[in-house]
Design a protein around this nucleic acid. Structure first.
Lengths: 189, 189, 189, 189
DNA sequence: AATGAATGAGTGTTCATTCAT
DNA sequence: CATGAATGAACACTCATTCAT
């Protein structure tokens, strides 16, 4: 179906090039679809981007939720949250980058607002994990949203560094991230 | 002088709108200068951006260096590095945001490369602080550059969150950042 | 069709004003077409110019080839080659002028190279006529390409003079050109 | 003196790059002179170009006149006229090219008109040599101006070809030009 | 459901020229 | 005589969007 081809092409190109450098022409060509078809399925570039962002967050949320379903000690849970994020950030590093940073740019205000809200929702979701961890007596009390924000920024920045310096290795990457995250979150026993 | 007016206008607009959304027309208008004047002082948009980035990093480096000149225990030094970054990120949050994130975009490759190098140099500078801290027996051994990258990403993300949620308060902001940074860096005694 | 309107407008304006003085705005206006349409059909000003040049040479080559198909003595053939060139140069004097002279200017190097090659091919085509004439024992031996170049320059210059001084008359024009060309080329018997 | 430095720089650059591709900045830089200085000595780019064209034609006229002063048979005189032109065209091929061809372009009409008149004067001067040759009984009767025009076009085109194909060699170049020019002009005895 | 020709406002850049010093 | 900072109109080109088919 055309719509799927478009979405796939858009993910690929937005990830590789960023929002502005990706033109609707590029997407159409990559998707093997005529330019007009993009506007048949989406009202414009902004809505297409929004769709991808929404799908991305939905996927992220879903994966994390599955991870948490398993019964495991808090430190294992945090570690696996980190691992999941690292994996996804590694795979879609540029897209994540765009979502968390480049959002300010040239999108229509209403779409922008919805994307920002989406991001806030996701932060809230992660914050909630932290809050429940505290309520279970396993994590420290913290300003949860701020901590979630900080944690995601840390992970993203570290992953980006690792991507730019491939000699780093994933083990060292995980270890370093955990060195920051675990002591800050886990309640000392 | 025209050049200064241009730089000021460019900082303001790049900070508010980002690199792409800021047009040379906008800058000229904001600076009360004819468009051609921009090109008299700078070879193009990219060079103008580069100038601002360079100045920004130079200022940052300088301020941190002053901080470190003082003789103080490692934990105090780390705290004050964090504090400095938080202050500067708060003051120039959007500019910092652009510098550290929007770099990927549509700038001429050679200018981009120089900016990326500038950023790497700054990371290396912070990493060096961490390395010397370890050599003095006060900080943990870590992949210094990766850790520096992670730390700066964490600070930026936290500061941005605080900017977007002013009710957070600077105390809580510092405390949260330090909760991540100090245990990760300081050697347990 | 838009494309044709554009080509026609471009021939007219490039002929009247030359390559540099003709702006894409002018062409769009003359063609009653939006500016973007030019770039839908041609990758840029250079390619548009190249198209016209190519078409021009193709037409020229074709007409000469037809002329040569007829079986006639060498002096008649040379005369009719001259006549053809004179006619076409008279009709499209400014365009010919641009093609043969203004090529040096500010076109992208790769396009320029193709145009130059096109011109060289045409010279080679005329040179070949001279070579075959010699092989048939009717024309003198000469550095064929150089002679072809010289001959075309002579014709163009003479035609341009006649255009600027209409009182000259076509008979006198042909006679003078032939006075240079025939003795130089025809083998004395 | 500044004025001379400017003229020299202008000759060099107009010759190398053509009228349009040469900017006033380039000339100022090449002349080691501030941009404003150009406008102190010349009213604008057009006038500067006109000056050079005038000087060029004056030099050409002068050199030919000297050549003709010597008492020599007509064929030798024609040959030496040709030789002189070839030499000068070789040395300043691009400038000659511009003067004879690119004149149409973007110069103010009044300046353009004066340059065109200059060129016409020069043609008339060469035509006069042909006329006197006829009156002396040594050259054929011809439409002198048309013939002069044709001859100069031929020489220029041949020289340009030789410049572009250096393997041609000056001997072959002279021989070919003379093969066209001499039989056309010299009265058969 | 899909197309692709056509659009036009917007962008970065160039450059001959001016003018206060 | 000479300067060089400043100008602004002109330019080639981009691209999200529209719409008749």
């Amino acid at each position: 179906m055309s719509r799927n081809k478009i979405v796939d092409a858009a993910i690929k190109l937005f990830s590789e090039l960023g929002y502005h450098r990706t033109s609707m022409d590029d997407i159409a060509k990559e998707a093997n679809v005529a330019k007009g078809t993009l506007y048949y399925h989406f009202s414009g570039k902004g809505e297409l981007f929004e769709t991808i962002v929404n799908d991305g967050f939905a996927m992220l949320t879903e994966k994390i939720r599955q991870e948490l379903a398993e019964d495991a000690p808090a430190d294992r849970q945090i570690e696996s949250i980190v691992r999941r994020h690292v994996e996804l950030f590694l795979q879609y590093s540029e897209l994540v980058h765009i979502i968390s940073n480049e959002i300010t740019n040239g999108i229509e205000p209403d779409i922008l607002e919805r994307i920002v809200r989406r991001k806030r929702d996701y932060i809230a979701f992660v914050a909630d994990v932290l809050r429940r961890g505290h309520e279970d007596g396993e994590l420290n009390e913290l300003p949860y949203e701020l901590a979630a924000s900080a944690m995601l920024g840390l992970i993203e920045s570290a992953v980006l560094h690792a991507v730019r310096h491939p000699e780093t290795g994933t083990d060292k990457l995980h270890a370093t991230i955990n060195a920051f995250v675990l002591p800050a979150l886990l309640r000392k026993k």
